[in-house]
Design a protein around this nucleic acid. Structure first.
Lengths: 121, 121
DNA sequence: ATTAGTGTACTATGTATAATAGTACACATC
DNA sequence: GATGTGTACTATTATACATAGTACACTAAT
């Protein structure tokens, strides 16, 4: 796996995050083919079932699409945002902010991180 | 438990977050005594062991302190921020940003949420 | 001294999830 | 037909969560 900064995540979640990041960074483009489940398993030193779980979630999230017998490909970016997805996501974000503040991290520093992240993705 | 917006968290983690939030909001002040493990368990409809786990984490995080035989009390706010804590926290924050962008949520909206959260805590 | 109320530690059980291993199948391509 | 796809199973191991119950050292009040 790429980094060990995400030890708090399960293997399949790290892989999902890694692929989502590469899409946002333009490394992976719509139509690009992902390595097969078995190939990715070799690359990332994971069990094929673990990779399959990651691919399944990417497919369910609309990040990728599957052409049966051919492989998994990067989908076009989402155009309209799901309001229910936003509503479900916001509490997660607010919880992170509370965690940060409890650690003594200022909101201004979070704003700075946000801008820096914006440059990367 | 207060809200069900945090279904993604374990019971003990929700309780930790709830107490941290109340501290940030000034509802709980340094020196205030938390309900006993058994009392809190009744209030929140939890097993005393689950509450004890939450109290243990709060103590380890320096959020509270224990006076043996007397109870658990809110500690003074952290003055100096642990650099290691920041280093460990940042990947979490960046992962959340990636998740948001993948859902189609703009960084500007995250900035807005940040400012709104700043008003609450 | 006794009693009651603290946090804490321990064992145990049931449930759920994560990650592994192995097998099998329908599909598309060559 | 052979190969490479994703997918669906079963099974095992390990870990985490939440529960239940018991016990102990400590403090405070009676």
């Amino acid at each position: 796996m790429a980094t060990d900064s995400y030890a708090h995540l399960a293997y399949y979640e790290r892989l999902v995050l890694q692929i989502k990041t590469q899409i946002l960074q333009g490394i992976l483009l719509p139509g690009d083919k992902l390595p097969s489940v078995r190939e990715m398993a070799k690359q990332e030193q994971l069990n094929p079932n673990t990779v399959a779980k990651a691919y399944k979630q990417l497919d369910q999230d609309g990040i990728t699409y599957v052409e049966p017998g051919r492989g998994t490909f990067i989908a076009e970016p989402l155009t309209k945002v799901s309001t229910t997805a936003i509503a479900a996501f916001r509490p997660k974000f607010e919880a992170i902010v509370v965690e940060a503040k409890s650690l003594g991290i200022s909101v201004d520093l979070l704003r700075q991180w946000l801008s820096e992240a914006e440059g990367k993705i």
